[in-house]
Write a protein that binds this DNA or RNA. Structure first.
Length: 302
RNA sequence: GCGCCGGUGGUAGAGCGGUCAAUUACAACAGACUGUAAAUCUGUCGCCCAUUGGGCUACGCAGGUUCGAAUCCUGCCCGGCGCA
């Protein structure tokens, strides 16, 4: 059976993914599925650099604004919704374009990852949060020695999740890599460090002048807790600290610039491992287009 | 001009005779990652070789005391405060 074609546009923050995705969608009759863990949330617009209605140029975008920022979203939910969105697009005879910078989300969809099927247990997590990393590791060792051997013993978040799964299933399952259901073209957008830094800087100030601070205030007014806002990371984390009077506006901007850069590097580290990504500079649209055309014509997967 | 306090690695800031290339934090760089992923976590971080380890240069500058100094003394330079 022929696998369905899926186009992926990925890259670090501020590399111009959205624009490229829209152009491709225009060209090849596509619809876009966002793969961004923060643009999922309603009301996080300027701070996440969410595409505007106008910029969409009539192209349908999926998985934006589908969750309340007050609640925690998860990869598992994302995967389910993304799969649904993609099949919908395919059913309409269009090309799905997965576009975003959240590497884990992309991989989960593209690789057809099977997640353990154990929902977060908030109560348990709260309880475990009081334990030391060492204690958590000991707990996991007792519950599932195998997983304890492969996990990062110093990462409480991972340990808690592993314990959560082990308690529900007896042990943390090992999942074999499944044959993926999509025939995928992964296109990565890349800029030199210097250019990316500059773009991050410019974009940050543009967001401020477009009202990012007002957006943050609005979110707080609508009941987004300070804690939750802090947990959203980057702009929202530092905006929260600023609104709280913990840092000055200037400190916020300075911190943000370096934090965004660091985030971009983490993204780069993640994407680097994937040797199947074809990298282009965003301005090389013709090349991207050509590659995409070739991919879409191709009969069989790889 | 006198008095006091201070000058430490990219930054902030410990150390106040040996165990100090120097706690720690931040930055920088590298990396991990299967239901919080813009999150969370790890490693490296004076220079030069080396696998453990070794060598060199370092704590404003110049001298000195000492077996031994970032740490004590003297002078100088610089900064802050106080008195003139």
């Amino acid at each position: 059976m022929q696998k369905s074609k899926l186009i992926v546009i990925l890259g670090q923050t501020a590399t111009g993914k959205s624009g490229v995705a829209v152009r491709l969608a225009k060209k090849f009759n596509g619809e876009i599925v966002s793969a961004d863990s923060r643009q999922i949330y309603r009301g996080l617009d300027l701070g996440t650099g969410k595409i505007t209605k106008k910029e969409m140029r009539g192209i349908p975008h999926h998985l934006l604004d589908i969750a309340s920022p007050r609640e925690q979203f998860s990869v598992a939910e994302y995967k389910k919704l993304a799969d649904t969105a993609i099949s919908g697009i395919l059913r309409r005879g269009k090309i799905p374009i997965l576009c975003g910078g959240t590497g884990l989300y992309i991989d989960t969809v593209v690789n057809g990852t099977i997640l353990p099927g154990v929902a977060p247990n908030i109560k348990l997590r709260k309880k475990l949060n009081n334990k030391t990393t060492k204690q958590l590791f000991e707990m996991l060792k007792k519950l599932d020695p195998r997983r304890a051997g492969s996990i990062d013993p110093q990462n409480p978040r991972r340990l808690i999740r592993a314990i959560e799964i082990a308690r529900a299933l007896g042990k943390v399952p090992i999942y074999d890599q499944r044959p993926t259901i999509y025939d995928t073209l992964k296109t990565g957008l890349i800029l030199s460090d210097k250019t990316l830094k500059r773009k991050i800087h410019i974009r940050l100030f543009a967001r401020i002048s477009r009202g990012m601070i007002t957006e943050a205030k609005r979110l707080r007014k609508r009941g987004l807790s300070r804690r939750r806002m802090e947990a959203l990371g980057l702009e929202y984390r530092y905006l929260a600290r600023y609104l709280n009077g913990k840092i000055s506006k200037q400190e916020m901007l300075a911190r943000l610039e370096t934090e965004i850069w660091r985030y971009a590097k983490r993204q780069r580290t993640w994407f680097k491992r994937d040797k199947k990504i074809l990298w282009f500079e965003p301005k090389e649209f013709e090349k991207i287009e050509k590659e995409t055309k070739r991919f879409l014509k191709r009969k069989h997967a790889r």
